[in-house]
Measured scan of single mutants.
Amino acid sequence: NKASVVANQLIPINTALTLIMMKAEVVTPMGIPAEEIPKLVGMQVNRAVPLGTTLMPDKVKNYE
């Protein structure tokens, strides 16, 4: 099972992601793969992401 990116804290809307905000966890359904964490640093979320929520591609601005 592959790990996904999960919010390590509440991430407010329009916040630029940092390493400390994210952790890798095996979750269902799968979100953004954990190996993409370095790519996500500096990207902004387009909505608030509660603690423990899986980061889905549609929650990150300009994620492809």
Rank of each mutant, 00 (worst) to 15 (best):
N1H: 14
N1P: 14
K2H: 14
K2I: 14
A3F: 09
A3G: 10
A3H: 09
S4C: 08
S4G: 02
S4T: 05
S4W: 00
S4Q: 04
V5K: 02
V5C: 07
A7H: 03
A7W: 01
A7E: 02
A7Y: 02
N8R: 14
N8F: 06
N8L: 08
Q9W: 06
Q9Y: 03
Q9D: 05
I11E: 00
P12Y: 07
I13S: 10
I13K: 14
N14V: 05
N14A: 06
N14D: 13
L17Q: 00
L17C: 06
L17N: 03
L19Y: 11
L19V: 10
I20R: 12
I20E: 14
I20P: 14
I20Y: 13
I20D: 14
I20A: 13
I20K: 13
M21K: 03
E25L: 13
V27H: 03
T28A: 12
T28S: 14
T28F: 13
P29Q: 06
P29L: 07
M30E: 12
M30N: 11
G31Q: 04
G31S: 02
G31C: 04
I32Q: 01
I32L: 02
P33S: 10
P33C: 12
P33R: 08
A34F: 07
E35M: 11
E35H: 13
E36T: 05
I37R: 02
I37N: 04
P38L: 10
K39W: 13
K39V: 11
K39T: 11
L40Q: 00
V41Q: 03
G42W: 03
Q44E: 14
Q44R: 13
V45Y: 00
V45A: 01
N46M: 11
R47L: 10
R47S: 15
A48V: 12
A48H: 11
V49Y: 06
P50G: 08
P50A: 11
L51V: 12
L51E: 15
T54K: 01
D58A: 07
K59L: 15
V60T: 00
V60I: 14
V60W: 00
K61A: 10
K61S: 08
N62E: 09
N62V: 01
N62H: 11
Y63C: 05
Y63S: 00
